[in-house]
């Protein structure tokens, strides 16, 4: 049986690892802290300011993880051309995350799926809650609200034959108070590909709350205290004790 995934998500600003809070850099730490034998996947996101994407510093970060982790590596942040994607895949990355580019120029994402296969392309959806409880979708690292209706845009993205969708809550990012279950329940049934969720995971029970949902394939954590072998093992032990089917290897 396919296992539910616990995914480590790392954000980099100019090649330096940061934790974010509500999409702004919160505090920095060193990537040597990361010891991820029991992680199921690693996501590397470049949050460097616009126009400075795919600098040598971030490409070096990707190389570091490819050479040191025998784990699936997913990369995102500012990928806006076939050339960008080729550069990243050529480093040994399995999957890339698209976001703003799909909104601005869907043909790129369509072409990427043709070249690299749909299972190699993830679409991230960054959502923000309005005061009335409805949700809007943001692009450009949370700076721009898209000019399309939320459900309609989700349907559109699904129609591109994308491999997975990463649902991200801007409000809960870095807050460690749990995932936005309302958001997840509201939109996950409208998506027919595997769904990953991000934003708010603080303790093991938060992961249980989302991984027990049938529609959710994986949960991402950005919490520095989860980036050790001991904490990942204890997370997985906890999830197994709650009958969540996760990979636990000694």
């Amino acid at each position: 049986m396919l296992k539910k995934r616990l995914i480590i998500s790392l954000t980099f600003n100019e090649g330096v690892l940061f934790r974010t809070k509500k999409f702004l850099p919160d505090y920095r730490y060193t990537k040597n802290f990361v010891d991820l034998w029991n992680a199921d996947e690693i996501i590397l996101i470049d949050v460097s300011s616009k126009g400075k994407k795919l600098q040598k510093s971030f490409l070096d970060v990707i190389r570091f993880f490819i050479e040191n982790c025998y784990l699936p590596i997913t990369v995102g942040g500012g990928i806006s051309s076939i050339e960008d994607a080729k550069k990243i895949f050529s480093l040994g990355v399995e999957k890339i995350i698209m976001n703003s580019s799909t909104y601005k120029n869907p043909k790129i994402t369509h072409d990427l799926i043709n070249i690299f296969g749909s299972s190699s392309i993830i679409q991230a959806i960054d959502m923000k809650k309005n005061n009335d409880g409805s949700y809007i979708i943001k692009v450009d690292n949370g700076k721009t609200t898209i000019n399309r209706e939320t459900n309609e845009y989700l349907e559109f993205v699904s129609s591109l034959n994308i491999g997975e969708i990463l649902l991200n809550s801007i409000d809960n990012d870095g807050g460690l108070m749990g995932f936005d279950l309302n958001l997840i329940n509201k939109f996950s049934s409208k998506i027919n590909v595997p769904i990953l969720v991000q934003g708010g995971g603080g303790n093991w029970n938060h992961f249980y709350e989302v991984l027990k949902l049938k529609n959710i394939s994986g949960a991402c954590t950005q919490n520095i205290y989860h980036f050790t072998e001991i904490s990942l093992k204890s997370a997985k032990k906890y999830l197994l004790s709650k009958n969540i089917n996760v990979r636990y290897d000694n």
Partner: peptide, 11 residues
């Protein structure tokens, strides 16, 4: 009945 692609860890 499963979602496609088949992605993740399987035994």
């Amino acid at each position: 009945q499963e979602r496609i692609p088949h992605v993740g860890w399987n035994n």
